[in-house]
Write a protein that binds this DNA or RNA. Sequence first.
DNA 1: TAATTGACATCTG
DNA 2: CCAGATGCCAATT
Length: 104
Amino acid sequence: MTPDEYVEAVLELVDRIPPGRVMSYGGVADALTERSGRASARLVGSIMARQGGAVGWHRVVNATGAMPPRLAAEARARWLSEGTPLRAGRVDMRVAQWRPGEGM
DNA sequence: TAATTGACATCTG
DNA sequence: CCAGATGCCAATT
């Protein structure tokens, strides 16, 4: 699998996350590991840093259900817009975490 | 080629 | 709950 295809796979997976649901970077990495054999939360983070603008980046959060200060405001607005379950100002991961194969 | 950095995760104190 | 340390993999410098 070439790097480009790997990036594509990540973007496609993120694109498949339904509105109002989210996935953690680690979750995306884990899902991609089964498909591409290699992934890590940092890799997904790096890819989002470059290509994030091309997809619904607000549907990918870190393990605490929050986002870096830089994106927190924008992300919160989008979460409210899509009705993402929030808890104490962060995404309620217990409920909002989505995994591929669910809802198809 | 080696060192540094980054939209992360997880453990320890 | 916060801060520090370690592991991870690729892109940059």
